[in-house]
């Protein structure tokens, strides 16, 4: 009878959940990126030699560092927001404001980090 369950990755990503859905997706991407980052570190040490140097140049590249810092910082701050709301459910009424606070904390820290990484990379 009928279709199978009508949901998959693409259908899920198409859902217009606005701000909260965006933080959820970024949190998952961030978690995955952190796992990849740690895995590359471990593989680099495990293999050593030319393969290790290849992995080193990959994760030490400034563009990758800007990306991974976005993932790690967002994952941390978003996780903190969720922990706080889970521990004090009364605050959940202010979840919209909590997301704005999250971005207000995240953006300046990230902007400073990008500036420092880029300036260092460009020899400033």
């Amino acid at each position: 009878m009928g279709l199978k369950r009508n949901v998959g990755l693409i259908e899920g990503l198409r859902y217009q959940g606005k701000g909260p859905m965006l933080t959820y997706i970024l949190h998952r991407i961030g978690g995955l990126a952190i796992v990849i980052f740690v895995a590359v570190h471990i593989l680099s040490s495990y293999f050593g030699g030319n393969i290790g140097i290849f992995f080193n140049t990959f994760y030490m590249h400034w563009a990758f560092q800007i990306f991974i810092f976005f993932c790690a910082l967002f994952h941390a701050i978003n996780g903190l927001r969720i922990v706080i709301l889970d521990l004090w459910p009364k605050l959940i009424e202010h979840q919209r404001e909590a997301i704005w606070v999250e971005w207000a904390v995240f953006l300046p820290i990230y902007a400073i980090a990008v500036f420092v990484i880029a300036r260092t990379a460009l020899g400033g």
């Binding site: 009878m1 009928g2 279709l3 199978k4 369950r5 009508n6 949901v7 259908e11 899920g12 859902y15």
Partner: peptide, 13 residues
Amino acid sequence: ILGLKVIKDLIVD
């Protein structure tokens, strides 16, 4: 709506 089987058009199980 997502996550349920479609019976016909907009009707889900």
